[in-house]
């Protein structure tokens, strides 16, 4: 049960694992932006090559990425289907009522599918090679300019890190309560949807109660260890920008500039 939500991290020490989480977050965002500039097939070849090289450098089997694809499969098929049959074009290959299959539709659908695949591969790469805690640290750094508008960056970062830390604990708690309810005859797996939803109620209330208990204990412990607020705190864990991070960023800038120039020429 522990592995369910945040178990997507794949422990390792590859080049991609060791990159700064801030870099990985920024590159993910930039990559998605770049994808929407890609209108012609050579750009997709370049972007595809970037993904292939990144996946190879992470040393993670392709099957892990395909698993990340599975929950998105229906969404992809649906969108691709829409593009396929509802794009009007001049070269119509097949028509039935208001459904038509045109050359433009085929091309559009291909691009959409490629965009989905590229984005999913890249973001799966981020979660597979970066621990949730590192992602939280990276996010804290990236949102730190918000301090100017009095946004409580430190507090939010601590909240995030405590939330991540308590996920396995709450999972254990859920299993424990479920077992206790099963022993009293609650059936979580059978019956109509409404019946199953009702069965969740005796699960949610004890879980809520125990979360509040944990929070209250944790508060006491934090105060007695001198926690006041984010002000005046020093940090034990810090992120270090390495030479390799600059190299990767540089390479990405060169590649994306190249791609944009290519797009303009076509």
């Amino acid at each position: 049960m522990n592995k369910l939500i945040f178990g997507r991290y794949y422990p390792g020490n590859s080049f991609v694992h060791r990159l700064d989480p801030r870099l990985k977050l920024i590159l993910n965002i930039l990559f998605i932006v770049l994808i929407f500039f890609a209108q012609h097939w050579p750009s997709y070849v370049i972007l595809g090559a970037v993904v292939v090289v990144s996946v190879w450098a992470s040393g993670i089997y392709l099957s892990f990425f395909l698993r990340g694809l599975r929950p998105m499969l229906w969404l992809i098929l649906f969108t691709v289907g829409l593009q396929l049959f509802f794009t009007s074009g001049q070269h119509v290959y097949w028509q039935w009522g208001w459904l038509s299959l045109s050359r433009e539709g085929l091309i559009n659908a291909g691009y959409i599918a490629a965009r989905f695949l590229l984005i999913i591969f890249m973001s799966t790469l981020l979660t597979l090679t970066t621990q949730p805690l590192e992602i939280a640290d990276g996010l804290e750094y990236l949102i730190s300019p918000l301090r100017v508008i009095k946004f409580p960056v430190n507090e939010v970062a601590l909240m995030l890190s405590i939330a991540l830390r308590f996920v396995p604990k709450l999972m254990d708690e859920t299993t424990k309560i479920m077992n206790a309810q099963r022993a009293r005859g609650v059936d979580f797996n059978n019956g109509s949807l409404l019946k199953r939803a009702k069965a969740l109620l005796p699960l949610l209330i004890p879980l809520m109660m125990s979360s509040i208990d944990i929070a209250s204990d944790l508060t006491t412990a934090m105060i007695s260890r001198g926690y006041r607020d984010g002000e005046g705190r020093t940090r034990y864990r810090i992120l270090k920008w390495q030479m390799r991070d600059s190299w990767v960023l540089g390479a990405f800038v060169v590649i994306s500039t190249g791609m944009l120039v290519l797009e303009r020429m076509m």
Binding site: I162, R165, D217, L218, S224, Y227, G232, T234, R235, Y236
Partner: peptide, 30 residues
């Protein structure tokens, strides 16, 4: 103070982070 419940007083995400938590609060330099 060391409290009763082992889980509910563990603030840090890792062992080293938790040990450092009190010092972070008191502004001890890294």
């Amino acid at each position: 103070i060391v409290f009763q419940s082992p889980d509910n007083q563990f603030v840090g995400a890792t062992v080293a982070d938790d040990v450092a938590f009190g010092m972070e609060n008191n502004g001890v330099p890294r």
